[in-house]
């Protein structure tokens, strides 16, 4: 699925958008198109000149960059943005990105991001979305992995009015690895959709999807996760898990796991849970004198902690942890 253009919305695949009514969400907005402007830190050396609305970054061969490159995009009321980011990470390079999405008002951000990870290169990609509760954000990320490439992503969505984040990962070379995780924090009438498709095209690939949602009030969450193993992709190891916590009776979560496997020697698994906080650990904590509020807080922090602890970069983990705690308050 590529960039969602306003004039293409009528033609969207119904099945693919079954749980997320983008048309209705956009109908509520009055927007005029504006240029997509990113604030960047640490990226200047690697920028490739390109057109309006496009950011193009190339990390040269074998370059190791420790300090995360930050890309920030602020939305403004009444605007519509059609942004594009193209990142090429050449052979043997290693880099980390932090994408921050913020904004105030009713706007629509439609972003298309493409990352190609060269042979034996490594990319960590962290996304933090703290958008306005009235905006619409549609973000499509395509990741192409060559042989021995490694890609790791963690997305914290704390969330837009209507949000759809898509990841499409193509394992185009042998022995490549993709590790995707995320946490959606939904409240009010927010709608948060995470849709993932991992295409294992070449053998010996590994992929993992680990996504969680916390839903308050009347929010609605969606997780669609697909593992597609092509005929040649023998010895693929694909994993998928979705855990969702309902903190309100009116909240709703839709989950659609999908395995499509054409190779015969593979290991793939998926699982999901959706429910309220368990009574048993709650009672155990309270029986030790811990009041109900505090016990809930401990259990919810533990729930999100499982996602955060997958972030290897400590400075990002600390920042995300703070943002999540703020949201939980």
């Amino acid at each position: 699925m590529q960039n969602l253009l306003p004039d293409k919305i009528e033609t969207l695949d119904r099945e693919h958008w079954k749980y997320s009514n983008i048309k209705a969400a956009l109908k509520k907005l009055e927007t005029t198109e504006a240029p997509a402007v990113w604030e960047m830190t640490g990226a200047f050396d690697y920028l490739v000149p390109s057109g309006e609305n496009i950011v193009h970054i190339t990390i040269p061969k074998n370059k190791q960059i420790d300090q995360p490159i930050e890309l920030t995009f602020k939305g403004e009321d009444g605007k519509r943005y059609m942004g594009q980011v193209v990142i090429e990470v050449e052979q043997g390079a290693s880099v980390k990105f932090i994408e921050r999405q913020t904004g105030a008002g009713a706007y629509w951000k439609n972003l298309d991001m493409h990352i190609s990870v060269g042979k034996n290169a490594s990319v960590e990609f962290y996304r933090l979305c703290e958008e306005d509760p009235f905006c619409v954000v549609t973000e499509f990320m395509t990741i192409d992995l060559e042989r021995d490439a490694r890609f790791r992503a963690c997305a914290i969505n704390g969330c837009s009015g209507f949000g759809r984040n898509e990841f499409t990962v193509n394992i185009n070379g042998e022995n490549a690895e993709a590790d995707l995780s995320g946490l959606a924090l939904l409240r009010g009438k927010q709608h948060g959709d995470t849709t993932v498709c991992v295409n294992h095209i070449k053998p010996h690939g590994r992929s993992s999807q680990f996504f969680k949602t916390i839903l308050k009030d009347q929010s609605r969450g969606v997780y669609q996760g697909k593992i597609h193993v092509f005929k040649d992709a023998q010895k693929t190891d694909g994993y998928q898990l979705s855990n969702n916590l309902l903190l309100s009776q009116q909240a709703e979560m839709d989950i659609k796991p999908e395995l499509e496997i054409y190779a015969d020697d593979v290991k793939c698994s998926h699982g999901s849970t959706t429910g309220e906080l368990d009574e048993t650990p709650m009672f155990y904590l309270r029986s030790r004198g811990i009041p109900e509020d505090k016990a809930r807080q401990l259990l919810i922090e533990a729930f999100v902690g499982e996602v955060l602890e997958k972030i290897p970069c400590e400075c990002v983990r600390t920042m995300f942890d703070e943002r999540v705690k703020l949201w939980l308050k």
């Binding site: 650990p281 155990y284 904590l285 030790r288 533990a302 729930f303 499982e306």
Partner: peptide, 16 residues
């Protein structure tokens, strides 16, 4: 006894 993933022992004892 109940297993509570993500809640660390020392923190649990101190909170209690």
């Amino acid at each position: 006894p109940v297993e509570i993933p993500g809640v660390q022992m020392t923190n649990f004892l101190k909170t209690a």
